[in-house]
Design a binder for these strands. Structure first.
Lengths: 347, 347
DNA sequence: CTGTTAGCGCTTTCAG
DNA sequence: CTGAAAGCGCTAACAG
């Protein structure tokens, strides 16, 4: 009924219009609309008048006006290197869920690892008035860029990548420890014969994995077996690195670890090109678990990051800052443990 | 230098403040800031004064005020069933890129296939004042929900799922034709022994695939070999469907097609449980290509949707409506062809 | 060429 | 319990 009526009548209106139509003041209307009727003891009669009118015509608040007045948008920005990347996509999905729970909306943006683009994106989001930013940065973020209108810094949390100077609250996976465990396990299973194919070794998350890898090798007295590409984290890189490795070894390695899914894809291509498929006895090690890895008949050791743990921690931290009546939030590092899986089982 | 100065001075200011400080009017300031100095022939002197001031102190526009006045947010909302799903994540990534190119920002939201949530999300985004909505809906979208303030309908394009009544401009993949080609190819390679495991057969995209599958089977005079689950598109479903199939056949099928990556994952699990891996001679057919499928030693026939083509078409259509000085945009259907791949080669 | 002014819709004192 | 009025920052007439 009401639904029907709403379609005929002029659509949702402003508070002011509702006030005019119902013959009360905007304050009164606003009070009942915002559910504060009780608190201000609006008379039941006027209250019902208003509620009836709204039920009939509908009303949706205009956030633009609200934002302008409140200097608050109830929006948070999330900046990641690549929205299509499975890891970041999951992160975004979790964060959007959290946002929804608190009536916030999520602005998603990508940088493609370009620092300049990242800076512009940050400024852009701040100009949009976001109340908070969650960022997986491609460079050490500069706090002075996270301020608006001389106000204090916009709530910010860095996720996934811990740059040396932790100037912001930061939430990351336990890359170093995971890498160490993964490497140890692989060495145990492969007899110590393991290589690490990686791109962008300067990225803090990758650097941590390299450290973990090196520690495990060092503890076992094995020399470093690292193949690196400074920049391009692409399948093409993975292909090239694996190609190099095959050329060097003259045959397939017993096992290898790839620093990202893209590198793994490339490595698979190189192996397929050479052997018509991935030799079944190669042990695969990876940090970005994907269910399709089960397609391989190979032994797969993978670290599954606790994506939802990361998102939860990051969001909680963000909200603390946003609600923050407290002055400063500590710019600490929060590490979320991942889990090592062998094929489909956690070990 | 300027950078340095900017850090000492009070941060970015309002147009009004800049006007006061530089001793000119807000109009003048606005004109030069918006790059319309030429057009209104602002004198070089005042112009330089302003530019110098801005260069020194910086200025970022406040979108809240702008939105309120212009009734336009330069934001578009994108609503998909699941942001973590590879297909939608790619779509989101492409769309964000497009948005960026036009100075728009992207609000991302998910529905998890819940109609009620979808409706709320639409209303929410409209209340936020988005200028456009791109939606992969889980139900026939109701145009009356896409209006704001009695104004005409917010620019909207439906993507990925063509419901029977095409009330909005709609951009989808060529699911039916792709499915037919895929099925024909698989039958040619497997001797006609092919099954289709699918979830949510009522979804228009899935329904189209089922039609294509049935057509190919019909043309070859083979009976329907469809295993369906009405709702849950999950790995658990895929596992169950494959389990049922194995029980029925008493052994692995020669080939099967899965309606989604999740179904494929589940099917793989069921096969692994039963045979300790995916029997190598099974031919895999799928609609959501993923590079990791190369891990399989199996023959893989997959339809790769032209994600960026979909995104381009959808965005173009959206922009037409947003800029639309023309009255109505035709609510037509735009079909984007996918490509059939055998292993890594298009065929 | 430049300045003044009136709102956009909302919230928030401050008065009744 | 309810109303009036100011103002958030921006833009777009309209005057000079």
């Amino acid at each position: 009924m009401d639904e029907e009526a709403a379609q005929d009548q002029p659509q949702p209106r402003t508070i002011e219009e509702i006030a005019a139509e119902t013959g009360v003041s905007v304050t009164t209307v606003r009070l009942v609309i915002n559910g504060q009727a009780e608190r201000y003891r609006i008379s039941a009669r006027t209250r019902q008048t208003i509620e009836a009118y709204v039920a009939k015509h509908g009303y949706v608040i205009d956030h633009a006006g609200r934002s302008l007045k409140l200097r608050r948008s109830d929006a948070v920005g999330c900046i990641v290197p690549d929205l299509a990347n499975a890891h970041f996509a999951r992160l975004i999905a979790e964060l959007e869920e959290q946002c929804r729970g608190r009536g916030l909306v999520l602005l998603a943006a990508s940088t493609h690892e370009k620092p300049e683009r990242e800076r512009q994106t940050v400024s852009g989001l701040i100009a949009r008035g976001v109340d908070g930013i969650i960022i997986a940065p491609c460079e050490q973020p500069d706090p002075s860029r996270f301020v608006r209108r001389g106000q204090r810094r916009v709530a910010t949390v860095v996720i996934d990548r811990a740059f040396p100077k932790t100037l912001f609250p930061t939430v990351v996976g336990d890359n170093e420890a995971s890498a160490r465990r993964l490497t140890e396990q692989i060495m145990a299973e492969s007899g110590g014969d393991v290589f690490f194919l990686c791109a962008r070794p300067k990225m803090p998350s990758i650097a941590a994995r390299i450290r973990g890898f090196a520690e495990a090798l060092g503890a076992a007295g094995v020399e470093a077996r690292l193949l690196c590409e400074p920049e391009e984290d692409t399948a093409a890189t993975g292909r090239r690195l694996m190609g190099d490795l095959l050329a060097t070894l003259g045959g397939p390695p017993r096992s290898f670890i790839s620093s990202s899914l893209l590198i793994l894809e490339g490595a698979i291509q190189a192996l397929s090109d050479r052997f018509g498929g991935v030799p079944r006895d190669i042990i695969l090690g990876t940090f970005d678990h994907h269910p399709l890895m089960e397609l391989a008949s190979n032994r797969v050791l993978s670290v599954r990051q606790d994506t939802s743990g990361l998102a939860d921690a990051a969001f909680t931290c963000l909200v603390e800052q946003m609600d923050g009546h407290s002055e400063e939030v500590a710019a600490g590092l929060r590490v979320i443990a991942g889990t090592l899986y062998a094929d489909r089982q956690p070990i």
